[in-house]
């Protein structure tokens, strides 16, 4: 918002705009790639050690469940994931690093959870697993584990571009009673403190992850709902297209960064 119109200052109007929160901040520049940091780097030494060691990372318990589910026959087709995909260690390598990815049947990008449920419905003829259910988290974590250490690799083409732009718009748009945009904290104020916690850059490289605050495993959408509630905005329901677009933007924003799934966060 410019305080000048026709060369003459309008101080009263400008002041009113500031008070009412109408000022339009210029969209923050994307964080340069050399300055991008995973949330891992903002954690304490103890929490990092917890994530790095498979003997202490509590998400390992979900990985064991996920491996069992991968090999379990399910649905009317009586097929297990392993019957088509074989060993996940080979076949699922890099899958999580590429999602959200374009899905021709849905006509839009889908995230990993949606891809798993589409596979369940189509190939196994089984009922979809509920968002944040133990089984879906376990299976997603097991698939995502196979991408650990690989760079995030989101391909944007003519089909996915509009969804990426929609996700970026959500990230940049002020919303909620606090009138905040994601970008204000995560592009402009990362590294500073919000209450007692360090503001991270919001790179979703470790999902689904074990959050100590949750005392359990959770998806990226659960985390996004937390953020929206904190901004006093109404969170989208699980699986909402707005969320998947935002996931796509966040993953694209973290392109090239290393996958950590399943990570540990405070």
């Amino acid at each position: 918002m410019s305080a000048r119109r026709g060369g003459r200052p309008l101080p009263a109007l400008a002041a009113a705009c500031v008070v009412l929160g109408f000022t339009q901040a210029a969209p923050a520049a994307e964080i340069p790639s050399a300055e991008r940091r995973s949330g891992y780097e903002f954690m304490s030494r103890e929490t990092r050690a917890m994530q790095d060691d498979d003997a202490t990372n509590p998400a390992v318990l979900w990985l064991l469940d996920g491996e069992a589910l991968w090999n379990r026959k399910d649905g009317a087709a009586g097929r297990a994931c392993a019957d088509c995909h074989g060993n996940a260690r080979a076949s699922m390598k890099g899958a999580a690093a590429r999602h959200p990815a374009w899905d021709a049947a849905a006509g839009r990008p889908v995230n990993l959870e949606q891809r798993i449920n589409a596979c369940r419905a189509g190939r196994q003829q089984a009922a979809p697993l509920a968002y944040e259910s133990r089984d879906l988290l376990a299976l997603t974590a097991y698939v995502a584990r196979q991408s650990r250490g690989m760079p995030v690799d989101i391909a944007i083409d003519k089909r996915t571009k509009p969804f990426l732009d929609a996700g970026r718009d959500t990230f940049m748009r002020r919303q909620g009673q606090l009138n905040l945009a994601c970008t204000q904290c995560h592009d402009e104020l990362w590294g500073r403190k919000l209450a007692g916690s360090t503001i991270p850059q919001a790179h979703p490289t470790g999902y689904p992850l074990y959050r100590l605050e949750w005392q359990g495993l959770g998806s990226l959408q659960r985390r996004l709902r937390n953020c929206l509630t904190g901004m006093r905005a109404e969170p989208y329901p699980f699986g909402a297209p707005e969320f998947v677009d935002l996931e796509l933007y966040l993953m694209w924003r973290a392109r090239g960064m290393k996958m950590e799934s399943p990570a540990v966060r405070p």
Binding site: D53, A55, T56, P58, V60, L61, Q215, G216
Partner: peptide
């Protein structure tokens, strides 16, 4: 010795 057990507590 490290032990980790799955329980909602």
């Amino acid at each position: 010795i490290k032990t980790l057990v799955q329980h909602a507590m």
